[in-house]
Nucleic acid binder design. Structure first.
Lengths: 175, 175
DNA sequence: TATTGTTATACTCTATAACTATA
DNA sequence: TATAGTTATAGAGTATAACAATA
């Protein structure tokens, strides 16, 4: 993860180019973000798989159902998985494992209402403490409160900005 | 991505539990990091795929070879892909596309030296400006210099900490 | 006609284990 | 024996398009 254009003195070069390279400070932040977030996610996924036999997506689905409110597939798909078929696949696995149930909605016969089962709730209760431990150990124990606030503010801004962006070279938002 | 344990007033609850839930500020930072980094990566991957027909891993491999130094598979594998077979697969794709070449090392006949081809170099030159544009648009244009430095410092710390951790419940480091 | 969801299908990617060849 | 790399294989996950049912 090195080698972006820059001179020997660390200053970006752009002779006749239109798009100058990133500044060293930008590179550093970019790489640190990508690698740090990636490593963190890997550890989290490993824990969820080991302790609860869950993928990260499945964990997100369960967490979303946690308040007890039956939720449609479309609502679940928003922000978790890109395609609806992908969600159908994951929900199928969760249902096969007995962690959720699916039933037609009374309001709209087209819709499927997904509900967390007792077993699903138990699974969350089993996995969540360790999950929190992992995040705490790898993230929060390292960061003073000020850094915590900065991180939340900065990445919240990034998240909101990308979410608000019009989809680039894509047909529509809903897939 | 909501629903972690907390009371109605936003304060973590832990009646008789051993592991208290995360504080709201922690949750916020955690979610913002996960979602922000994930969205950013998705956009980057989409660009690389669209403009250069490259996966993120392939892009990383090319970037790593960019200084012209022939590199062994093991050296490449460090930090890019988890398993060696995974790297063999990706390198196979890159070689088939003519972006790299593989040849036995003169020093160690067991080792494979990977070298960037002219076509590979051209591909990087084609993709990199747009890549930089994407990162700039989605990340740097949003952040004042101070935030940039904070982000790099914080995530650099997270990265280094996780990297330094002993592997949890895993046989060995090299897979 | 539009929307909800599923299915069939193909594809990408990853990991494990067995294997070859060299050190 | 240990290491570098490949291969065979299996499995997880995703997306696209076609489809059925309902609004």
């Amino acid at each position: 993860m090195t080698g972006f254009d820059r001179g020997a003195d660390g200053v970006p070069q752009h002779g006749g180019n239109e798009i100058p390279a990133l500044a060293p400070r930008q590179l550093e932040a970019y790489f640190a973000l990508q690698e740090g977030a990636s490593l963190l996610q890997q550890q989290i996924e490993q824990h969820l798989r080991t302790e609860g036999d869950l993928s990260l997506v499945q964990f997100h689905i369960l967490m979303r159902l946690r308040n007890g409110t039956p939720t449609t597939m479309t609502e679940l798909a928003d922000g978790i998985v890109h395609s609806r078929s992908g969600l159908t696949y994951q929900a199928g696995l969760l249902e096969k494992s007995g962690l959720i149930t699916r039933a037609p909605s009374p309001d709209d016969e087209r819709a499927t209402l997904v509900t967390l089962t007792d077993k699903g709730r138990t699974t969350i209760a089993t996995v969540l403490p360790g999950h929190v431990q992992v995040v705490r150990r790898l993230l929060f124990d390292l960061l003073p409160d000020e850094d915590l606030d900065d991180l939340g503010r900065i990445m919240g801004r990034v998240r909101d900005h990308i979410r608000a962006e019009p989809p680039r070279s894509r047909g529509s938002r809903a897939t």
